[in-house]
Structures are given as structure tokens and as C-alpha cells.
């Protein structure tokens, strides 16, 4: 028997396309889209420079981009910046890892059993909308100022997106996969590891990404309230020193460090898993 139509299909080799592109037919090149993005950013920086240098807004409140760059360079040179970045990342990693360790398995269990879903749903719905930073006062009462309080705030913020998305992924598993498991009599533990978790992967990755992002946002707020170092502390401290250049510089560092991990790391993780399997979510 000869192989039938033995050419790998070339679907899914193209990236996601916007509705506009698909309606219009031939799409603008990837390069042009990237260029537009950078041009816009340059435009924003230029506007900022104009606004600051012409003195429309008082100079001691709005420094120019160059002054901000200079402040960041100085903070980098005396080791302050690196120290604060490392402190923030350290807290982020510890709190985030804890939230994954708790949120992922719990999400799997919740998604699997309709009873746990019913049991937890109402409670989670009330707790979920509480912003992570709103936990900080309680955390300070319980753990005092410092590391533990911040870890607690990140943990509690990151754990819910991970749990809720993982549970949704398990609950939304395609019926046909369940039928394959039934037909072949796959044992529950193996079915869980080999079928349920990978099938829920698009949702799990969304949860991990969201958890990381919200965690990073909360850590900065928590450091403003409850720390003596870290990027949040650094920008708040710069405010006391009337150093808007360092405040803005610190904010940009927060954004860039967040971007690096959130997009670079999670994009890589997605390409390695659901991208390779052709399971990207379309949303």
C-alpha cells in the first residue's frame, strides 16, 4: 500500500492574523507592522522630550528622556538598581512558584470534579476580584513589614488566575478525548497526566501568564507599602528625594523586566508546547 497524500500540511505555519488582515486579503508584511510599532514608540518619546524641554510642564516634575536615562545609568553604576531588581525578582520567583505549586494541582482537581467546582465557585468568585494590594495591610498585620508579607501578597494574587484558568481548561476538555480514554480503558492517573493536562494546556498557560503578570504588578505595590528595598521601594524612595527622573526610570525598568519575562519566557513556553502541537487558542 502506498502512502496517501504524503505531504505534511502547511496549515498553522502562519501566525495569527488580525480580522482586518483576513478581510483585506494580502496582509502587510511582518516587518512593516514591527516598524510601525517602533516608530510609534519613538514618536511618544519625542513628544515627551518636547513637553519636558519646552517647560509646558514644570521641569522639576517632568524630566526629559535623557535625564531619566542618566538617572538609570547612575543607579546602575552604583549597584543600587541591580540590587533592587534582584530583590524584586527574588520575591516574585518565590511567591510565584508557591502559587503555581498550590494553584495548578488545585485547579486540576477543581476542574475535574463538578462537586469541588460547586463547592468552591462562590467563595472564589468573591475573593478573585480583591486586588492583590488589598491583601497587603492584612499581610503586614500577620507577618510584619518585609519579605513574608510581600510573598503572601504575590502568592494570593497569582494563585487565583492559575487555579481558575486551569480548572476552566480541565472542565472544557474536548469530549472526544474522554471517549478515547474510555475506549482504551486508560487508568485515571495516566489519563490525567497524558491526556487531561496536555488537553488543558492552552488554558493552563493563560493562567500561568496571567498569574505572573498580576503577581509582578502587585509586588511593586507591596514593596511601596512594606519593604526597604526592591523596585517598588526604589521609586517610592525617589519620590521622597524629589527625584522624578529616578521615579520614571524605575517605572520603565519595572515595565521592561516584566515584559522580558512575560513575553520572552512565556512565548517560548507556548512555542515549545501548544504551538508545536497546533493547539493555540484563537483569543
Amino acid at each position: 500500500m502506498s502512502p496517501i497524500d504524503a505531504t505534511p500540511a502547511t496549515v498553522a505555519e502562519h501566525g495569527p492574523r488580525s480580522v482586518m488582515d483576513r478581510l483585506r486579503g494580502p496582509r502587510a508584511t511582518r516587518f512593516a507592522h514591527a516598524a510601525v510599532g517602533y516608530l510609534f514608540l519613538v514618536g511618544v518619546i519625542l513628544l515627551w522630550h518636547l513637553a519636558a524641554s519646552t517647560g509646558i510642564y514644570p521641569r522639576h516634575l517632568l524630566p526629559t528622556p535623557m535625564e531619566v536615562a542618566q538617572a538609570v545609568r547612575e543607579a546602575f553604576a552604583d549597584g543600587d538598581l541591580i540590587h533592587n531588581v534582584m530583590r524584586s525578582l527574588e520575591r516574585q520567583v518565590v511567591g510565584y512558584v508557591a502559587s503555581v505549586i498550590v494553584g495548578l494541582p488545585l485547579g486540576l482537581v477543581v476542574g475535574w470534579s463538578r462537586w469541588t467546582q460547586s463547592a468552591l465557585q462562590t467563595t472564589i468568585r468573591i475573593i478573585y476580584p480583591i486586588p492583590g494590594v488589598a491583601w497587603v495591610p492584612l499581610a503586614i498585620l500577620w507577618f510584619g513589614l518585609g519579605f513574608k508579607s510581600i510573598i503572601f501578597a504575590i502568592f494570593i494574587t497569582a494563585v487565583f488566575p492559575i487555579l481558575v484558568n486551569t480548572a476552566a481548561g480541565v472542565a472544557a476538555i474536548d469530549e472526544q478525548y474522554i471517549r478515547v480514554v474510555k475506549v482504551f480503558g486508560t487508568k485515571p492517573l495516566r489519563a490525567f497526566l497524558r491526556v487531561v493536562i496536555p488537553a488543558a494546556m492552552p488554558f493552563i498557560l493563560t493562567g500561568l501568564r496571567l498569574g505572573y503578570g498580576t503577581g509582578w504588578r502587585v509586588i511593586i505595590s507591596a514593596e511601596i507599602l512594606a519593604a526597604t528595598d526592591g523596585l517598588g521601594f526604589m521609586i517610592d524612595n525617589a519620590r521622597w528625594q524629589l527625584r522624578p527622573d529616578l521615579v520614571i526610570g524605575g517605572m520603565l525598568i519595572i515595565g521592561i523586566v516584566g515584559l522580558l519575562v512575560e513575553t520572552v519566557f512565556f512565548d517560548w513556553l507556548e512555542r515549545r508546547t501548544i504551538g508545536r502541537w497546533g493547539m493555540q487558542r484563537t483569543d
Binding site: 472526544q176 478525548y177 487508568k187 488537553a199 502541537w277
Partner: peptide, 20 residues
């Protein structure tokens, strides 16, 4: 078809055996 997209073709074919 109901193949598992996260398993290779060989792993998919072997899935019934794996289950046993």
C-alpha cells in the same frame, strides 16, 4: 480521528498499548 495533538504519531498509535 480524535488523535492527541500533543503526542507524536507513534505515541498516538501506542496509546492503547500504553493504557494496557
Amino acid at each position: 480521528y480524535a488523535l492527541f495533538p500533543w503526542l507524536t504519531v507513534a505515541e498516538n498509535v501506542a496509546f492503547g498499548l500504553e493504557s494496557q
